[in-house]
Amino acid sequence: MSTVTMLMQLGKGMISTAEIFFLTLLFSLPLGLVIAFGRMSKRGLVRGISKFYISIMRGTPLMLQLLVVYFAPYYLFGLNLRGYRFPAIILAFSINYAAYFAEIYRGGIESMAIGQYEAAKVLGYNRAQTFFKIILPQVIKRILPAITNETITLVKDTSLAFVLAQAEMFTMAKQIAAKDTSMVPLMVAGLFYYIFNLVVAFVMERIEKAMNYYR
């Protein structure tokens, strides 16, 4: 296979990788916040369920979760869903990453001084205003380094989608490498992941800098 064809194919795989990455962030970041609320709920049952959910998601391999999410509709309900592969991947990644993000949010929220809540309360802010105007912006600043770590891990984890034969970059690289009996496609894919993560790190650093206007 010519180098150009190889790069074209890996490039296509890269697009799929990027899709998994962005869609996972899009869904898991808000979902993580919801789960964090569950984890800190006053109701013991809600708290228990959230805690159990998080422990399952963090305690079992993401690769296994991908397989379960993909095959569950068939084995549980006999459903043969067309075009379910990609949604299954996004679903599995999102619910997995949401669990990690939930714990990060929780740590951030619990680290906030009670005085911020009390000041807001005396000033008349309602609960939603207090959370979204006063607490969350400060929490985001605090947890940004941890979010950056997870995000970088996610870039690499997207390669796990190969278990469902999704044509993302790692799957493509593996196929070409097998066909051409060459290491080069794998090395090039590695380089692509690395560059992707350089960009991610750069963007996150910019966001962190932008939030440095206060302490």
């Binding site: 000041a119 000033l123 008349g124 802010y125 105007k133 600043k141 206060y214």
Partner: peptide
């Protein structure tokens, strides 16, 4: 409060006007 509890992410002006405006 004894330890002020200002909102660190708001400027002085915003600390003062935000509650009157949004509450």
């Amino acid at each position: 409060f004894q330890n002020f509890n200002l909102f660190p992410h708001y400027s002085v002006m915003k600390n003062i006007i935000d509650a009157p405006v949004s509450v």
